[in-house]
Write a protein that binds this DNA or RNA. Structure first.
Lengths: 188, 188
DNA sequence: CCGTCATATATCGGCTTGATATATGACGGA
DNA sequence: TCCGTCATATATCAAGCCGATATATGACGG
């Protein structure tokens, strides 16, 4: 999905400012499967406004800078639905964690263990934050997103907790793993 | 990780051409957690070659166009390890599937069911392809990547198979779900 | 008083992507 | 036999995106 559609989707949930839309991608329900930067959100909102897909209202605030509040128009709703009807692109996952784990034979074992411990903490924190949210009043699709997300995070957490001992911890006196290079080509 | 590091990592596994490196990201072990396009791979290989981090050899082929084979240099190995030592960036996940599922109250229920069915097929196919690979001879980190990946795909598959019935299938005579709009703002 | 953080909008250089271009050869259908 | 499609192979570029930067108000803690 391009940033225009992401913004339309965010505004479908309720009127919001550019800053709030960014927060929705960083901390809100979308944070697990979409992202967008200020560098693309503000220009996209400008274009959407010019095309009549969103309305923009300037709002003064106390003790805070003024803000621009965007609201989806009827035309914008139709364009959002149209975008949802297009065939989905494949997922794109970029994970430094997996990349580092994959090449961890090049790293000191304690650094790999630290990497895994931090990942475990990340899963624990994410699961807690998602558990604090009760999705039973949400639309069905959102419930499935929540449930599938929880399943992914929980099974990942369980797996890492079961397998983290393969790498030595801080207090461990295990000898470092031997660094052996992988043989063979990339693609058979 | 930037594309230079991705290429160095790919070449750490063995010499390869630009085309083969792209294949490694599309179909090889990295395909689950990294990607890069020709548009960035070829320029990156050029720069790496200029900087002496990789060597390049032109190879003629029968019944196929000539190819340039790249090989990691000692200097390149050191730069790769250096990059692996830097703190990892957070994962970035972009999923049209989750986005469409989230807004599925805007879609005809059968289209959502089709989306889920296709996702199930994707998981089944991915699990099969990963099962055909025996990771027991790999470095420990690669084994954990394989195992964690399998866990994620399997638990996702199980969850969707258990919950797909919430949406009507092709043969179902269930009435369409009511389209109710979500209330409230994005971020509490 | 100053540095940091949150809130708020906005821009831009650099990087990446997806499309396009060119080329060889295999393969299947008309 | 010809043509379209696919795989293999290198390469480039316009468009889009990101991360950094800029500016601003106010709270808060040292």
């Amino acid at each position: 999905m391009d940033v225009r559609t992401l913004c339309l989707g965010a505004l479908y949930l309720g009127e919001a400012s550019g800053y709030e839309i960014k927060k929705a991608f960083e901390e809100g329900p979308f944070s697990h499967f979409q992202d967008a930067s200020f560098g693309s959100i503000y220009p996209a909102l400008g274009r959407l406004s010019n095309e009549g897909l969103v309305d923009c209202t300037q709002m003064a605030q106390e003790k805070r800078p003024d803000k621009k509040v965007y609201r989806l128009t009827e035309k914008g709703s139709l364009v959002l639905i149209e975008s949802l009807m297009t065939p989905p692109a494949p997922d794109k996952v970029t994970s430094d964690f997996f990349f580092l784990l994959y090449f961890s034979d090049l790293l000191p074992p304690r650094q790999t263990r630290q990497l895994i411990d931090k990942r475990i903490a990340f899963y624990q924190d994410t699961i807690k934050r998602m558990s604090d949210c009760d999705p039973s009043t949400f639309p069905l699709g959102q419930q499935l997103c929540h449930g599938l997300g929880m399943t992914i995070y929980k099974s990942s957490l369980d797996y890492l907790e079961q397998h983290k001992h393969a790498f030595p911890g801080e207090a461990s006196s295990l000898p470092p793993l031997s660094n052996s290079k992988t043989s063979g080509r990339l693609v058979s």
